[in-house]
Simulated scan of single mutants.
Amino acid sequence: MFHMVMAESSKLVRWKIPDWLITFFWLLMVAAVWSAAVRLLEIPDYILPSPENVVGWISSRPGYFLDATVSTLQVIAVGFSAGVAAAVPMGLALAKMPWLERSLYPFVVFLQTMPLIAITPALVIWFGYGLVPSSILVGFSVFFPVLVNAFAGIRSIPAPLYFVARTMGANFLQTFRYIDWPMTLPHLMSAFRICLALATTTAVVSEFIAANEGLGFAALRGVRNRDPVQVIAVVLIAAVVGVLLNGLSLLLEQRIMRKYRG
């Protein structure tokens, strides 16, 4: 009897612990292991600084990192929005018009296979350093995954649904509103969540070459100064930005899907 009560109580405790608290606990464990390894192995700061030094370095320059983070977020916002705005209608059009798919899809694949870093110097020559070239690179990184998911969402719709819609006299806009968009939306929301991580990575990497501000440029300054504390600080901040954007996209996805399913 006692064992049954303890088992039920342990299940209740596990159920009440929020997921974010468990994640925070594991982050603390990683930081503790990192700090202990640096101290026990006597690793110098110029090879691997301790987490205390990294956090202290960030807290001593809050304005600098805030400005860099805001600059990177601007690149992510502009590039992600532009990539999605171009990819969604094109993906829907390719799925709806087979002749357009046959003619344009190979060209889209060709653009996607181009290494983004290779075209960065050309973008810098055309647009200079700053927001525009970095945003274009982010838009390219987002474009293809969103297009493929929009295309797959339309192609996954059963043909009988269209037959029923035509039988009931639905026009093109009504079919799109009540069939195409709701059925494609889950594919798009998954693509958006994945592409936010891609956009964050691409934005930081693009700022190594095509920008004179942002987290990537801050990391580049750390490399030039041979300062691993600054480099690791930028990596941690970029990771936090990615996690927060992923959490925000997940909340939006849950609210939007609840609206359509409710």
Rank of each mutant, 00 (worst) to 15 (best):
A191R: 02
E213I: 11
F208S: 06
S190G: 15
S190M: 14
A203V: 06
G216R: 08
A203H: 05
S190P: 08
L220R: 13
G214M: 14
A218I: 08
L215K: 09
V205T: 13
V205Y: 02
F208P: 00
A211C: 12
A199S: 13
V204E: 04
T202G: 06
A191F: 05
G216M: 07
A219G: 13
A199V: 07
R193D: 00
V204L: 07
T201K: 02
A199C: 11
A219V: 12
T201C: 03
F192G: 01
C195L: 00
A211P: 05
S190V: 15
L215W: 09
A197I: 00
A197P: 04
R221F: 12
L220C: 01
L220F: 14
F217W: 15
G216H: 06
T201E: 05
G214H: 12
E213R: 15
S206Q: 08
G216S: 11
A199G: 07
A211W: 09
F217Y: 15
S206M: 11
I194R: 04
I194P: 02
A203K: 03
S206C: 08
L198I: 03
T200H: 01
T201L: 11
L196Y: 11
V204R: 06
S206H: 09
S190H: 12
L220E: 10
S190N: 15
A197M: 03
S206E: 04
A203R: 04
A191M: 05
A203P: 10
L215F: 08
L198Y: 02
I209V: 15
G214F: 10
A211S: 15
L198H: 03
T202H: 01
A203C: 08
A210R: 05
L215T: 05
A218N: 07
A199R: 04
V205K: 01
A203F: 04
G214Y: 09
F217E: 08
F217N: 11
T201N: 03
F192M: 07
F192P: 02
T200F: 00
A211H: 10
E213F: 13
L198K: 03
A197S: 08
E207K: 11
F208G: 07
A211L: 12
E207I: 02
A199P: 06
A210S: 12
S190F: 13
I194H: 07
A191E: 00
A197R: 00
A219I: 14
G214L: 14
R221N: 14
S206A: 15
N212K: 14
C195P: 02
A218R: 14
A203G: 06
R221P: 00
R221A: 09
T202K: 01
V205W: 01
F192C: 02
V204K: 03
L198P: 01
G216W: 04
A210P: 00
S190L: 14
G216F: 03
F217K: 10
A218E: 14
F208M: 14
C195M: 04
E213A: 15
F192H: 00
A218S: 15
A219P: 09
F217A: 11
I209P: 03
T200P: 04
T200K: 00
F217I: 06
A199M: 07
N212M: 13
E213W: 10
S190W: 09
N212H: 12
F192K: 01
A210C: 02
R193K: 14
F192V: 05
A211I: 10
